Simulated assay, not measured.
Amino acid sequence: MQFSDLGLSEKVLRAVEDSGYTTPTPIQAQAIPHVLAGRDVLGIAQTGTGKTAAFTLPMLCRLEQGRARARVPRTLILEPTRELAAQVEESFNKYGAQHKLNVALLIGGVSFGDQEAKIMRGADVLIATPGRLLDFFERGKLLLTGIEILVIDEADRMLDMGFIPDIEKICKLVPFTRQTLFFSATMPPEITRLTEAFLHNPARVEVARAATTASTITQVLVASHGGGDKRET
């Protein structure tokens, strides 16, 4: 299968080609058609399987129509850490080079004023960590009534970091009619309850057994014989 078989727009296909990719990873091949069709998606995949492109590419296609308004972003991507949020921003800048979309990043450790200026210009794509997003919302600097697509990425890491109450609050602030894309490497009971509460008849895409290592990771075992050898090993 090629990217050209997935129903992506010409602009997105050109950007993918310019990036040197021709063959989608399993999660991209399975998830992209569902996202383009407007369905909620529950994706179970490890970091390193290409899931960022599995949601950024079809989102770019969906965003080719319409314009963002001040303080009212069109799409929202939640990430557990500012490093992951910055990586997603890079993906949008790379694949969306021909789209001229406004991408805003709301993360800690960055000037509040600079981030507010981006929101005021109108954000087609808002990428945020939960705490900073709720901070903006509670200050009245941000409205979530225009969200068309909500992405919750690395949900099991959100759980580990104590963000699930924030995620539940955010899910209740965005429109009921939004499309939700939910990605997690594992499905503990708390995450399962979250998907049952906030996803509507999702397409389930599972490309790796829970808690397995991504194929891009090489694992090795270095044996130690104990005693004094252990410290040397």
Rank of each mutant, 00 (worst) to 15 (best):
R71I: 04
P73A: 06
L76E: 02
I77G: 05
E79M: 13
P80M: 13
P80H: 10
T81Y: 11
R82S: 08
R82V: 09
E83P: 11
L84N: 03
A85D: 03
A85F: 08
A86M: 12
A86D: 14
Q87I: 11
V88W: 06
V88R: 07
E89G: 03
E89M: 11
E90M: 06
F92N: 00
F92R: 00
N93D: 15
K94Y: 12
K94I: 15
K94S: 13
Y95N: 06
Y95T: 07
G96W: 02
A97Y: 14
Q98E: 15
Q98Y: 15
Q98R: 15
Q98T: 13
Q98S: 15
H99C: 09
K100D: 09
L101A: 06
V103E: 05
V103M: 05
V103H: 01
V103L: 09
A104D: 02
L105Y: 00
L106V: 13
G108L: 08
V110P: 01
V110R: 14
V110N: 08
V110W: 11
G113M: 09
Q115R: 05
Q115H: 05
E116I: 00
E116T: 00
A117C: 09
K118P: 00
I119Y: 00
M120C: 11
G122K: 04
A123R: 01
V125W: 02
L126S: 04
A128I: 07
A128C: 12
A128D: 07
T129I: 13
P130Y: 11
P130Q: 11
R132S: 07
L133D: 01
D135N: 13
D135T: 04
F136I: 01
